[in-house]
Simulated scan of single mutants.
Amino acid sequence: MAINKVEFLKKLELFKNFNDKDLEEIAKYFHEKHYNKGDYLFFEEEAEPGIYILVDGLVKLLKETPDGKTIIVRLVFPKELFGWVEFGGRKPRYTYTAQAVLPSTVLYMSNQDFINLSMKYPQLALMITCDLSEKLLETYEVLKSIASGKVEERIAKLLIELGDKIGQETPEGYLVIEAPITRQDIAEMTGTTVETAIRIMSKWKKEGIIDAQRGRIVLKDLDYLEELAGY
């Protein structure tokens, strides 16, 4: 079933100040794409520039380090943007590969369509560029943090960030993260081994700091995690 692109765009902060007529025009630049679990949306070295908005599903953004390790630099949740744009053929320094973790639907706008859109809606183009640039800088910060700091600190930061993004608060004050995030994913997002991620998560579970089951992580002692993360 095709997406009602106008109704979907209305739900995004970037498009909240546009009327229906403008949104109908903007929606023409976006093309609906579907991916199965495990499909690659694009590869870092081969990717054509463009803008993606995740409609549903879950996407992970991957970066290969100089020593051949694969790191997840970001998980993309519905209504979030990813990708990049180029002006004058200049590619951003920090790009990545994108892979669907779940069956996923995106709205895609090519680089050329974005340039055309910017002629009609320069303010929107500026906001999109700023949003994408901020997220590319976050990619750099992830790579930088992996190169320094203790593993426990990095995992604590990751769990707090996930809790802030998609966590649901319980009456007890816990944060529940409902997402198909594996120990392998946690290892790849924090630049460590699966064995180390399992050891740390198991230790925290025994100490009552978290509870972890398949597809569900409960942050029970946020004060401890925030102190460990240096917040």
Rank of each mutant, 00 (worst) to 15 (best):
P49W: 00
G57T: 13
E25C: 12
E32T: 12
Y40K: 14
Y29I: 05
N19Q: 09
Y35S: 10
V59K: 09
E46F: 05
K33M: 13
Y40F: 13
I26W: 01
K33W: 10
K63L: 11
K37I: 01
H31E: 00
D56E: 15
G57D: 06
L61P: 04
E24Q: 15
I26E: 03
H34G: 09
E24F: 05
Y29L: 11
K21A: 13
E25T: 15
L41A: 04
L23R: 11
L23P: 03
A27T: 04
E64N: 09
L62A: 10
P49K: 00
L23A: 06
K63I: 15
K60T: 11
F18K: 03
E25L: 14
V59W: 03
K28C: 09
N36P: 01
G57P: 08
G38D: 01
E25G: 07
L54A: 10
P49G: 02
V55S: 06
E32A: 04
E45W: 07
F42T: 11
E44T: 12
V59C: 09
D20R: 12
D39E: 14
L54E: 07
G50C: 04
E45S: 11
D39A: 12
L61E: 14
F18I: 02
K37T: 11
K60Q: 15
K63P: 05
F30W: 03
